[in-house]
Simulated scan of single mutants.
Amino acid sequence: MIPYGRHSISDEDIEAVVAVLRSDFITQGPVLPRFEKVIARHVGAAHCVAVNSATSALHISLLSLGVGPGDLVWTSPITFVATSNAALYCGAEVDFVDICPDSFNMDMKALAEKLEMAKTEKRLPKVIIPVHLTGRSADMKALDVLRKIYGFKVVEDASHAIGADYDNQPVGSCAYSDLCVFSFHPVKIITTGEGGAITTNDHALGRKLAALRSHGITRDPDEMERNEGPWYYEQQRLGFNYRMTEIQAALGLSQISRLGRFVAHRSELAKRYDQLLADSDFVRPLLDTDDNLSSWHLYVIRLPEGSGTLARRHLFEKLRSDGIGVNVHYIPVTRQPYYRKLGFVPDCFPVAENFYERAISIPLYHDMTESQQDTVVQCLLGPAGYQTIF
């Protein structure tokens, strides 16, 4: 089986983890702060807070911005459910903005229209979460213009996008946002097994995030209401046990040293796919531009317009049966039974629906060979594998 995505683990990664296992700390030790500093330095942000998953990162990001009951959070319908679930965890309401047909990211024109209507209805969102789908940044400059007009906060869901660049800056620099969230799940660009991180340039938010990931507790005397001695700590808010272990941080610290190589090879494979599929009927994803360099977490092709869901299903099953581990990213959140019970109607997001009906993610990962890529393309372009008898 050629998987759609796969982690790449080196001997150096294994040695880094073993070193932690032999050390005095396997959690809450010195490796995690080093990992956080390396991430912050890499993306050009002032602060980084690492946690046990990107879902946890999204949750406490919203909490740090004061999201709660009565608030609205908007995001894209084409994302994993964790993005919108995080708002619900805070007791807020969630809504969605349709996507662009070419980038698969939030449509800023549709957002501007929705914001103008929401202003009239006095129901503006407190936070907007753009999703950098497949590793390509959303149009953050256009979002920033709207942020300055309407006053909402921005949390980037960059779960796919560590190693990407936007406007000649690394994604995660928070040049156009308050917070940025990364994922280190095994199929992502780098991995910590499970894990996530948040970057920000706001010192106060960084302190809140650090407390929220560890039960809402502080040990900083300058933040305490009282100090009874060197053993003393205070819980000042309701937090969670969202800490990342030293084992995870050691793996991440080793992996991030190869981030540039990971992204470069993924980009080469994406360009090669584009060339190999140039004469096919498949609609290929946008390639990089000078001011928007994807990390290429995913390579998503689409069947031609009007192909129908049966054609996509048949191709999906054919590829799986041929040992090609394709997937679909993502089922629109608004299709999920839980969200339909909340009143969402998928037809209200026609571009997202059209994308879903036609999209297939084909294999792309660092250790993929050109020979494996050729096999994927041959299966895509080969005969359908069935006969109709008249």
Score class of each variant (00 low, 15 high):
A175Q: 14
A175R: 12
Y176V: 03
Y176P: 05
S177D: 02
S177N: 07
S177P: 08
D178T: 07
D178C: 09
C180V: 07
V181C: 05
V181W: 10
F182R: 03
F182I: 09
F184P: 05
F184A: 06
H185R: 13
P186V: 12
P186G: 07
V187I: 11
K188C: 09
K188H: 08
I190L: 05
T191I: 02
T192E: 10
G193H: 06
G193R: 11
G196A: 03
A197V: 04
N201E: 05
N201I: 04
D202E: 11
H203Q: 14
H203F: 10
A204V: 08
L205I: 13
L205V: 04
G206S: 13
G206M: 03
K208I: 03
K208C: 08
S214M: 09
S214E: 14
H215I: 08
T218H: 06
T218R: 07
D220V: 00
P221C: 00
D222M: 05
E223F: 04
E225C: 13
E225Q: 14
P230M: 08
P230S: 13
W231L: 14
E234G: 11
E234A: 11
E234I: 09
Q235N: 11
Q235S: 11
R237G: 07
R237P: 02
L238M: 08
G239R: 06
G239Q: 07
F240N: 15
N241S: 15
N241G: 12
Y242A: 10
R243C: 12
R243E: 12
M244Q: 12
T245V: 10
Q248P: 05
A249I: 01
A249Y: 08
A250M: 03
L251H: 04
G252I: 01
G252N: 06
G252A: 08
L259V: 02
R261P: 09
V263Y: 02
R266M: 01
L269M: 14
Y273E: 03
D274W: 10
D274L: 06
D274A: 14
Q275Y: 00
L277W: 02
A278T: 07
A278L: 06
S280N: 13
D281R: 11
P285Y: 05
L286Q: 13
L287C: 07
D291R: 14
D291C: 13
D291T: 15
L293T: 11
S294W: 00
S295V: 00
L298Y: 08
Y299K: 11
Y299F: 14
